[in-house]
């Protein structure tokens, strides 16, 4: 999907630590809301080029889910200054995502 960077649980913690401004979408391959959310992220990334957008397959990376406390998908995990600052499961529209990111 788009130019989003696919990560795995092997590099999850290292990448989080290195990321100043970013977000991760935890997704599943056949999850319709995840696909929807990724389209929202495309709109979001077009207006926020400085924010790294990462994606991680929830089914293949249970350890990353445990670390981030993710059970549902899609879940958006916000990273600020090398640490997870907030997370939210479920669908958001572009406006809601911007607000969520700003307040995270």
């Amino acid at each position: 999907m788009g130019d989003f960077i696919e990560i795995t649980e092997k590099d999850f913690e290292t990448i989080v630590a290195k990321t100043q401004e970013g977000l991760v979408i935890f997704y599943k391959k056949l999850c319709p809301h995840c696909k929807n959310m990724e389209k929202v992220l495309l709109k979001f990334s077009a207006k926020n080029e400085n924010i790294a957008i990462l994606r991680i397959n929830q089914e293949e990376n249970p350890e990353a889910c445990r670390i981030a406390g993710v059970e549902r998908c899609p879940t958006i995990v916000i990273i600020k200054q090398g640490a997870i600052s907030s997370s939210k499961p479920g669908l958001m529209n572009p406006k809601e995502l911007i607000l969520f990111y700003q307040n995270a």
Binding site: K28, L30, C31, E59, E71, R72, C73, P74, P89
Partner: peptide
């Protein structure tokens, strides 16, 4: 409302 999204838990 979506088992694929929320069923794993």
């Amino acid at each position: 409302y979506c088992s694929i999204c929320d069923g794993t838990a």
